[in-house]
Structure formats: structure tokens, C-alpha cells
Write a protein that binds this DNA or RNA. Structure first.
Lengths: 344, 344
DNA sequence: GCGATTACAGTAAGCGTTTACAGTAACCGC
DNA sequence: GCGGTTACTGTAAACGCTTACTGTAATCGC
């Protein structure tokens, strides 16, 4: 007795095969470019495919074959323009490579061990780009153990796992911009951290510390504020410092979005930028050139980081060997939120 | 002879079934919440699932069942912050609803009829949110005919198709802001269109025309410029008008991103905003409050449009009846890129 | 010109689920 | 206490592809 549920009008591979007068195996070979098929047969099959508007059933391919032609991107909620550039970079890479992008937003710390496991892993994608601190090491280890190709974006893999990672030159970028602030006469420079445990932030802080040390300025912990790379939190933190009467003449906001929050508080307190307080960010977000005053920042190749992550992931999927780590160049961009000697 | 290719360590549904001492059918019922399963059995199965860290194979589910638990978003390349808010809105809706988001960037006009059909349709997703003019009516009709649930975002469906659409109150928003410009004394107001055939743009133009008519100002076609809702193109267009010596005292840039381009040209030509030329946009992009001068614009609920699109699509997938169209409220936001009488 | 190789194409098993259908035991009404 | 439900569970056939293996005709080496 048949269990067929639908009288689906779906065009299947055997319809194509029949029309082209070949077997389904041959059609499959043509579609995937595997095996050998004579030119004339290939031609006939392609004709049949476009005539019937055949599109392979993704799930069936995924089940039968080994690939889903999908890569996953795990990220926290989308907030700034940063993500736009990132996703666009990934897209630019996988476009025309027969891959689609599946997004997994992870809003809160999650783990394979928690109640509802993420539908991640080899189950649904051929590989994963992980860009969030909300996914714990255990989960990554677990998927790694399943032989799922993974690339880490702006975050290190758990110890001992051979997973490539893409980073910005955070430390150098931070060093450069803080050093530039110092060269231009600033002495009491605030650093606003990113989210707890964030690696970009940690590296930027290292650069900040190194720049101060290089200029014989002692670290004042009062000047190191908490933050989360977002404007709201930055606003509160600077507001706090002001209330506590902390003295500073410059602020390295951690990233551009936080810098925007800093702008707001300072304006509210009638502090001039850069005369009273110089401000710098990190990323060179799209809007940074347009805000007032235009923000001095470190240009980070966000689009490229997405593109490279995808490229490496695809290599991994194809079984090619890849590098362990890519550090993407940053570049100091001086605008009007700072002033003074330009140190080259 | 076995054709098994992998000695996969994958945990399958039969592993769970064995551990729980039930059949695979029962496990499936527990997972999907279908059929009836006694409380004690359900408990045992869930124990086995979490003990074995079982996650169903997405493709297998997609093949055997009728749902892929994935919705697709068809959009042009990601450019502005607009997309971030949009995608976030969609995510916020499908999060916890057991759906994932598959992105299809369509960079150039595409169609099912073209050489390489998009891997869209019921083949890979349970439904589609279409937000791009790059997908022609034929393709939409085709997918519609396959009974694929579809929601149109910022664009009308092809004639005669019963497809819900989500729009902003473009005409009203445009009317309000252009009317406000006129009330504040402006007489020669430029309108910069969006991309060719773009519906948001068409409706905004209607609002623009209606506002002029309501104030007895004749349309001057010289003041209606081409554009594509992006800063670069806006820059060129205004540059051109300036070169042709077109006279104007205000610019409705079509959207905020274009407004940013306008800012740049005007600044280059030493024209003051708003004294020489008032500027307004549409959307209320994240950066619009931070650029200088802060941009007067129409606040459009971008996040909400994504959320609503997803919500309606999910209803459609569940077979619920839905509304034909949702028009999302807009709101005039007056900042410093305009001045003068505030018309209430 | 003959055995070995190659190029091409077909057969059919299997991928891991879902679900129609078929039980079976407990329960119901009268 | 008996036929009819009801509540639950199992069996096994799809779902639409990919691909290992097999077969055959054409081609090659010598």
C-alpha cells in the first residue's frame, strides 16, 4: 500500500531523466559535475532541466549526499552596521559558489548541554562560522569532534582544537591610535572595554596598555571602564566617570558604536570634542565619517573578515589545508574628533 | 552489498529509540509533539535524547516530513543599517519558534527563467520573505503556484496573487515631511527617487506630489532627480543639478542614506544646511541622529516590518488566514537639517 | 588483431526521518 | 460481560536524491 501523501506536482530527477532519455544517475552527475558524462548527453540533460524548471530538492540532496550546500553563521543579535558589512562579506564569497547562508542568532549564552540544543552542527550545515561569545567552548568542541568544519571569527577556538580563526590586528590598531593620542598631547586616556570576555576587547586593551607603557605613562585603573561595544552602555559608563569626577582628556571608546554614546554624554555636559576631550573608536563604521565631529578611528576590514571567513570555511569543506590564523590589517584614520601632531 | 559510505558516529533516532525502549515512531512523535504519547514514555524518550545529545537530521526531516523549519529571505545585497534592523526583526520573530533563516542575496535581476534558477521555493524552505526588486513577477508567480507561502516586503505582489505585503506608510510620511518643508518656507524642493521601479520610492513621490499640490506649488520636473537610495548616486545627482544650475532650497533625499550623500556635495559646494538648503530623508536610520546636522526625517519601523513579515509568513505556513496588507505607521522626526515653523 | 584499459551509462541500495496503517490493552456504556 | 471506543505504540513504506558497483562499447598498446 502506498504511503505517498501528496500528489505533488514537483518535478523530480526522474522526470528529467525520462525527458532526456537517460538514468537518474546521469542527471545527478550532470548536476553535480561528478563522474564522466559525454558532451552530448550533458547537453540533453541540461535542456531537460531548464525545460522542466527542475530544481533539486535540497533536503533530498542533503540526505543522500554528504553536502547540504549551506553554511551556518552563529552570531549574537544584529545590532550595528558592523554586521551588515560582515554578512555582505560572507555573501560575496559564497555567491556563485552554490552555497547559502543560514543564520543562527544566539541572543543569550547557549550550549549544546543546555535544555534545547542548538540545531547546529553537521545536522544542517556543511560548516560553521562562529562569531559570538554566547556559544561555549564545550559546544564548539562537540561540533568539532563531529568533524564539522568551523571557522572562528574574532574569537579564539578552545585550546587544542585545530580551528582557523580570523582576527583584526586589534593590538596594533589600538596601540597606534592610543599612541597617536599621546603624541598629540593627551595624558589621561580612558579605555572602554567591550563585553565581558570579548577577545577583540582584550587585545585592544593590550594595545592600549602597551602604548601607555611605551610612553612611560602609568596605568590608572580608574580610567579603564566597562562597556559592551554599544552606545548605551558607553553613555552610562562615561556618565559615571564624570559623576565620580574622574579626570581625563581623551577616550578610546573600544569601538565606534560606543564612541557615539560617548559623544552624547560629553555634549550633554558641554564638553567640547576634541578641545576638552578627544575621542577615538575602532572599526570605522559607515557612520563614523558622517557624525560630528567625524570620528578618528581604526579602520577594520569588516567586510573582508566575513569574506575570508567564508573562503577559509569553504576550503575546509573541500578538504583543502588552510592557515591557522589570519590577522587582518587595520589602519589609523584621523578625523576631527582628535587634533594635534600627527605621528607617522 | 552495503552502500554505506560512512561509519558515522551520528546519533540517530533509532539510537534514541533503543535507549528509551520504544520505536522510532514514538521518538518522532515526542520530538514533533504529534500523536499521543504517554507521559512516562515521553519522559523516557526525552531523557534518552538529552543523554545521547540527539539532534534530528535536518535534511532527513525535510525529506520525510513536509517542513524544513527554515524560511528564506530574498534580498539585494546588504548595504545600510536598514538591513540589520530588518533581519533582526525577522530573527526576533522566528527565534524560539523553531525556525531558521536562510538568506538569498540576489545582486542582479534574476529569474527562475534565467540560466541558473535560484535554489528557492519549496525545495529548501517552508516559506519566503521577498524583499528585492531583483526577482521578477514570473518567479514569484511560479513559486506561488507551487503553494509556497510568500510574504512581500516593501513591494507589491504580481497582480492577482493573494500574497500579503508589508509596507510603510510611505505616501503619508512623504506628504508630512514635504508639507512640513513647505510650511517652513521652502518652495523649490528636490525629490530624489529610489531605484527604478521601487515601490517605496513611487509612493514617496506620490506623497511629495500631493504635498506640493496641497500647497498650490506646481511640479517642476527639473527638481525630480534619479537615485537609488544610496549616498553615492545621490551625490552625483545633486552634483549634476548644481552643475546645471538648478535652483532649489530643500531636498527630500528619498531615504537617509541618500541624504548623507547630499550632505557631502552641499558641504563641498559650501552650501549651509539648513540655511541655504534644508535636507530631509526617510527611514530614520541609526546614524541619522548623529550626523551633522542631525537629519530631519520620517521614522519608519524597520525592525517591526521584518518582525511582522515573519509573523505573517509563519501564520501562512501554519495555514492560518492572514491580512492582505499591513501598513506600518511612520512618524515625522524633526531635527536640525531643517528649520522654521513646525507644522503640527 | 587481441587483451587490457578507458569512457560512459545504468541499476538499485541507502541516507535518517515521518506517518499511514495496524495492532493491543485498557476502558466504556448498558 | 460484550461490542465498541480510546489511548498508546509498533511496523515499514515512502521522501528524492547520490553513488558504489556493474556492464558495455570504444579505444589503446604492441
Amino acid at each position: 500500500m502506498s504511503v505517498r501523501r501528496t500528489n505533488s506536482q514537483r518535478v523530480r530527477i526522474d522526470d528529467v531523466a525520462r525527458e532526456a532519455g537517460v538514468s537518474t544517475a546521469t542527471v545527478s552527475r550532470v548536476i553535480n559535475g561528478t563522474g564522466t558524462v559525454s558532451a552530448s548527453t550533458k547537453e540533453r540533460v541540461n535542456q531537460a532541466i531548464s525545460h522542466l524548471k527542475f530544481v533539486a530538492h535540497g533536503s533530498a540532496r542533503g540526505l543522500a549526499g554528504t553536502k547540504t550546500h549551506t553554511i551556518g553563521l552563529v552570531l549574537p543579535g544584529l545590532t550595528t552596521f558592523f554586521f551588515t558589512a560582515l554578512i555582505q562579506g560572507i555573501n560575496d564569497c559564497i555567491y556563485n559558489r552554490d552555497y547559502s547562508l543560514l543564520m543562527y542568532s544566539v541572543y543569550t549564552p547557549a550550549s549544546m548541554t543546555s535544555g534545547k540544543p542548538l540545531p547546529l552542527g553537521e545536522h544542517n550545515t556543511d560548516g560553521l562560522i562562529v562569531f559570538t561569545d554566547f556559544l561555549d567552548d564545550y559546544s564548539i568542541q562537540y561540533m568539532y569532534d563531529q568533524n564539522l568544519p568551523i571557522v572562528m571569527l574574532h574569537r579564539s577556538p578552545p585550546d587544542g582544537l585545530n580551528i582557523p580563526k580570523i582576527m583584526f590586528e586589534n593590538e596594533k590598531g589600538a596601540f597606534d591610535i592610543v599612541n597617536y593620542l599621546i603624541q598629540s598631547g593627551k595624558k589621561r586616556i580612558v579605555y572602554l572595554k567591550g563585553p565581558e570576555g570579548n577577545e577583540d576587547s582584550r587585545q585592544r586593551e593590550l594595545g592600549y596598555r602597551r602604548a601607555l607603557a611605551a610612553n612611560n605613562i602609568a596605568i590608572d585603573n580608574e580610567l579603564i571602564g566597562r562597556g559592551n561595544f554599544a552606545s548605551g552602555r558607553a553613555r552610562e559608563e562615561i556618565q559615571d566617570m564624570l559623576a565620580r569626577n574622574v579626570q581625563f582628556d581623551a577616550i578610546f571608546a573600544g569601538n565606534d558604536d560606543a564612541a557615539v554614546g560617548v559623544y552624547e554624554v560629553l555634549r550633554k555636559h558641554n564638553l567640547r570634542i576634541p578641545e576638552d576631550v578627544a575621542i577615538v573608536g575602532f572599526d570605522d563604521d559607515y557612520m563614523s565619517q558622517y557624525i560630528s565631529p567625524p570620528l578618528t578611528t581604526v579602520k577594520a576590514p569588516v567586510h573582508k573578515s566575513g569574506y575570508e571567513a567564508a573562503r577559509i570555511l569553504l576550503d575546509l569543506i573541500d578538504g583543502k589545508s588552510t592557515v591557522d590564523e589570519i590577522k587582518l590589517n587595520t589602519e589609523l584614520v584621523i578625523r576631527e574628533s582628535t587634533e594635534g601632531v600627527i605621528h607617522v
